[in-house]
Nucleic acid binder design. Structure first.
Lengths: 156, 156
DNA sequence: GAATTCTCGACCAACCAGATCGAGTATGCA
DNA sequence: TGCATACTCGATCTGGTTGGTCGAGAATTC
C-alpha cells in the first residue's frame, strides 16, 4: 500500500511551488530552485514536473526567466489528482477501480468478499485524497514557516 | 497503492480454508486442494500459507491426512492482520507507520503537510482493514454458494 | 547569437513480484 | 521398518518497476 517516491516528490514539489506562488503571485520558479529547496534529485524532479504539467496541474515557460507555476488555484488541486497522475489508480486491486477497471479471476464479483472490502478501501482512499486540497498543505507549511518570516502572514 | 498478489491470494485462500472449516469443523485442508479451488499456483500458495502459519493465522499438520486449518476463530482474523503479514505495513509512507516507523527527509514532521495527509490515510486504511473480519468475507461467500448446496445453510 | 530553461527519449542499476524447483522432514499406516 | 503423504524451506529464475542519470534538442529572452 505504498506511495512511490514520485508521488511523494510530486506533492512536496507542488507545495513548494504553491508556496512560492503565494509569496510572489504569478511568478515562475525553476526546476533547479525547487530541487534545491526540497532536496529532490534535479533530473528526477524534471520528469515529475513534466508529468504534472502534462496532467494540467502545472504550467511552464521555457527560456530565460522561464519556470513553472500552478496551472490553477491551489484550492482546485487535490492530492488524489496528483497521486493518480504519478502513481496510477488509487484502487488496491484493478477490479474495484473506476478509472482502470479490469476483471479479476473470481467467478462472481458481486459475491466476492475481497472485492467488497477493497471497494470500501478505494472509496475511503478517494474520499480523503480527492478532497484534500493543495492549499491545505500549503497553509500548513505557511503556518510553520511564518514563525520566521511574518511579513506576508496577513493575506490569506 | 496496490495490494500485491500475495496479499490477494492470502485472503482468497483464507476464505476457502475458513469456508471448509465451516462445512467440516475441525477438518484439515491440503495446499493442493486450496490451490485447485482458488486457481492459485500451488508452489506460490505454499509460501503464502507458510507465512500465514508463522504469523499465527493458520495451524498446520504434516504427513498423511495433514493440512491447514485456521489457528483461531474467523471472527478474530482481520484483513489488516493478513495483509500486514504478507505486504508489510499499511502506511503509505514509512514516516506515518506505527509498526515500521522511519524518519523521512522533511525538516519537521509536525508541520509537514504530506505527513498529516498520509496519517489520515493510514488511519482510514487501518480502520477499515483491522475491523474487517474474515468471518464477514466467508459469510458473503456462503450466502452466494448456498444457492446451490443448501444443506448446511441453517447452522450459523 | 548566446545564455537560459524546459522537453524528451534513452539508458541504467537495483530491487521486487511472482513463480518454480528440489531436497528435507514429520506423520500415519501397513 | 518402509513407504506414501504433505508440509517446510532455501535457492533460483524471469521480467518488470523504481529511482535515478545523461545528453541532445527546442523555445525564449536579451
Amino acid at each position: 500500500m505504498r506511495l512511490s517516491k514520485k508521488g511523494e516528490y510530486a506533492v512536496r514539489a507542488l507545495v513548494e511551488i504553491g508556496f512560492e506562488a503565494h509569496l510572489r503571485p504569478g511568478a515562475l520558479i525553476q526546476i533547479s530552485t525547487v530541487a534545491q529547496r526540497t532536496n529532490i534529485p534535479e533530473k528526477f524532479l524534471e520528469q515529475i514536473l513534466l508529468a504534472l504539467r502534462n496532467g494540467g496541474v502545472l504550467r511552464s515557460k521555457r527560456g530565460v526567466e522561464g519556470g513553472y507555476s500552478l496551472a490553477k488555484p491551489a484550492e482546485q488541486i487535490t492530492l488524489g489528482e496528483v497521486i493518480r497522475l504519478l502513481d496510477g489508480p488509487l484502487a488496491p486491486i484493478p477490479c474495484v477501480s473506476l478509472t482502470a477497471y479490469e476483471r479479476c479471476s473470481c467467478p462472481d464479483e458481486e459475491s466476492c468478499g475481497l472485492h467488497i472490502a477493497m471497494k470500501q478501501v478505494r472509496d475511503a482512499l478517494a474520499g480523503i485524497l480527492d478532497s484534500y486540497q493543495l492549499s491545505r498543505l500549503i497553509g500548513e507549511v505557511r503556518k510553520h514557516r511564518s514563525t520566521k518570516t511574518t511579513e506576508w502572514q496577513f493575506d490569506i
